[in-house]
Write a protein that binds this DNA or RNA. Structure first.
Ligand SMILES: [Mn+2]
Ligand SMILES: [Mn+2]
Ligand SMILES: [Zn+2]
Ligand SMILES: [Zn+2]
Lengths: 142, 142
DNA sequence: CAATAGTTTAGAATAATTATAATATATAGT
DNA sequence: ACTATATATTATAATTATTCTAAACTATTG
């Protein structure tokens, strides 16, 4: 309850109208201890599980993209299939479990900072991210 | 001409039948000095430009995936929209130009090797890749 | 409260990719 | 070389992720 006022405030500060749907999605995304990595489908499923009311899929897309634009969420590319989003908006690296298709945050202390000795001329670096793909050790050796 | 025999051989060695379409795609992909980064659409366009005959889009998809499975191509994830492929199959990092949507190989000497101090328990690391997103320096400062 | 601008929604539209099933081709065995 | 078999190609349909549309709804401002 108190939390909801926080979300309404948060949305207002970002210039987003605190609609019922946006506040609900905030609750699902940000009322948690740990980072949440999800696809739009994951989120839509969670909404229909945890909520009595439905939110239109278009609204889920719109809201997630609105949050991304305002810096509440980050988009992570894993494959060409679908987009992952991340409630951890700091610069950080990921493990991607190819068995479970899960994204896991990499502890920043576990990787030394990356030094790029030569950038493309006339361009500015916007982000530097590592993706570590892992899989079960006992695999069928083709 | 001599090149084609190489491609036929290359395909045979990988257990792929050297069909007309596969050899043609080999020519387009591998008869070049520099790494080629492309989307299926890029490749399909090149095929229809450089060839007199058409190759069905399904065959382009099938062939690219067959080559990927055999290790002739690598898939690179940039965003959730579409897949990029890479004729440079060695482990390497990329710049992604957000203005032109171009992928550029990063010289291995320009980045020190990455040391991951803690892996996920019970999992084996399959790949470690950096994606450096760059954009024009003189941008609209929102 | 009324006006307005912004939001939600169902459903249509697009775009990337994959599946289907008929036809064609490559290859191994004769 | 001819035939049988497995595999590949193709046009087209189907699927999936995402975005668009336009009408109904709602938050904010005065
Ligand atoms: Mn997006
Ligand atoms: Mn693929
Ligand atoms: Zn993360
Ligand atoms: Zn490359």
């Amino acid at each position: 309850m108190t939390k909801n006022f926080n979300f309404i405030d948060k949305l207002r500060k970002a210039g987003l109208r605190p609609t019922k749907q946006r506040v609900k999605i905030c609750e699902i995304l940000f009322n948690r201890e740990k980072t949440f990595h999800f696809t739009i489908n994951d989120l839509a499923k969670k909404i229909s599980e945890e909520l009595n009311e439905k939110i239109s899929l278009a609204t889920v897309y719109n809201t997630v993209h609105a949050f991304e634009k305002k810096g509440y969420l980050k988009e992570i590319a894993i494959n060409g299939d679908k987009s992952y989003f991340d409630t951890n908006i700091t610069a950080h690296h990921h493990f991607y479990d190819e068995d479970t298709h899960e994204l896991i945050d990499c502890d920043q202390n576990d990787i030394d900072s990356i030094n790029i000795k030569n950038n493309i001329t006339g361009k500015k670096i916007n982000s530097v991210e590592i993706l570590i793909k892992v899989a079960s050790d006992n695999q069928n050796q083709n």
